[in-house]
Computed example of a mutant assay.
Amino acid sequence: MAIFKHLNREEYSEFVCGCGAAIINIGITFPINKVIFRQMLHGMALRHAANQLFSEGFRTLYRGIGPPLLQKGISTSLMFGTYDAIQKPLLNTNMNVTISKGIAALMAGTAEATLTPFERVQTLLQDNHYNKQFANMRDVIKVIATKYSATEFYRGVTPVLMRNGPSSTSFFLLRETANKYIVLPPNAWAGFRVIKEFLTGAFIGALNSTLFYPCNVLKVHMQSSLGGPFISIRQAAIDVYKERGRKISYFYRGVHMNCTRSFVSWGIVNLAYENLKNVIKKN
């Protein structure tokens, strides 16, 4: 894209800080995410999902971390970097500030959907039904690439698109609103800034994760299949509805743990991002 051809050092730093923040976050929160995944896939209670992972042992606890580490590193880099790269030219056209930032955030989130193959591979690695079939990320990629078409990597892309664009828009607009109205005095204790940055990301992340949780449930349901016909998001919703006792509330099985994970995760991302940006500015 022409918009990325003339980025300066400060603009490139947005990509670097986003990537660094994601890597720090994934290393800390991956075990929690894996418990949530089992709840999404099997509709099981928190205690049963945690016991299942515990019984499998520590050796498999970080099994599947490769795809999210790559996917989140790149996607969060794209999220922050693309948002910054797109919104500045739009603002220079005298477009309404809120509209320009909303468009930039929506495009940044949509761009992340190109990384759906990482989520696809992660789903298969975290599903215990494939524990014996796949040893690692390389195995999954090799099987999909040799035995199936390239479109198999993008199974479940529709709920990803439904989640990414709107959630990124919500994140950036709410984040900027919080930064605008929650202003600390110049001589405030440094700890207050840390708390502010963590809680800003944490509350927005928790809100978004709850609002878009059903999209993740549908994505996991669609991506847990390997081969065979692709189902529509409507059919996926019907399948999950029937499998879970025809109760809409069961679409939110695991939402509490997911909300907690997102609270911690996005708090870490926002805090790490802001601090990495400060470090780069000083150097």
Rank of each mutant, 00 (worst) to 15 (best):
T114R: 00
T116Q: 13
T116D: 13
F118P: 00
E119T: 10
V121K: 00
V121W: 03
V121R: 03
V121G: 03
V121M: 07
Q122W: 06
Q126P: 00
H129L: 11
H129C: 09
N131Q: 11
N131K: 07
F134G: 03
A135T: 08
A135I: 02
V140R: 00
V140G: 01
V140C: 02
I141Q: 02
K142V: 05
V143M: 02
I144V: 12
I144H: 01
I144A: 04
A145Q: 10
T146D: 07
T146F: 05
T146W: 03
K147E: 11
K147W: 01
Y148E: 06
Y148P: 00
S149G: 11
S149Y: 01
A150K: 09
A150L: 15
F153T: 03
Y154R: 01
G156P: 08
T158Q: 11
L161W: 14
L161Y: 14
M162V: 12
M162I: 13
M162C: 15
N164W: 09
N164Q: 13
N164L: 15
G165E: 08
P166E: 13
S167Q: 11
S167D: 05
S170Y: 12
F172D: 04
F172Y: 13
F172W: 13
L173Q: 14
L174E: 09
L174V: 11
T177E: 15
T177K: 03
A178S: 13
A178G: 06
Y181C: 06
I182N: 08
V183D: 03
L184D: 11
L184Y: 09
N187P: 00
N187A: 15
N187F: 15
A188G: 09
A188K: 02
W189H: 15
W189P: 05
G191W: 11
F192K: 10
F192C: 09
F192W: 14
I195F: 12
K196Q: 09
K196I: 05
K196H: 07
E197W: 12
G201T: 07
G201E: 06
A202E: 02
F203M: 12
I204P: 04
A206R: 01
L207K: 00
S209K: 10
T210R: 03
Y213E: 03
Y213P: 02
Y213G: 02
Y213Q: 02
C215L: 15
N216V: 03
N216A: 08
V217D: 08
V217T: 13
L218G: 07
K219Y: 14
H221W: 09
Q223R: 04
Q223A: 11
S224L: 04
S225A: 13
S225H: 13
L226S: 01
G227K: 01
G227Y: 04
G228H: 02
F230G: 01
I231T: 07
S232H: 00
I233S: 11
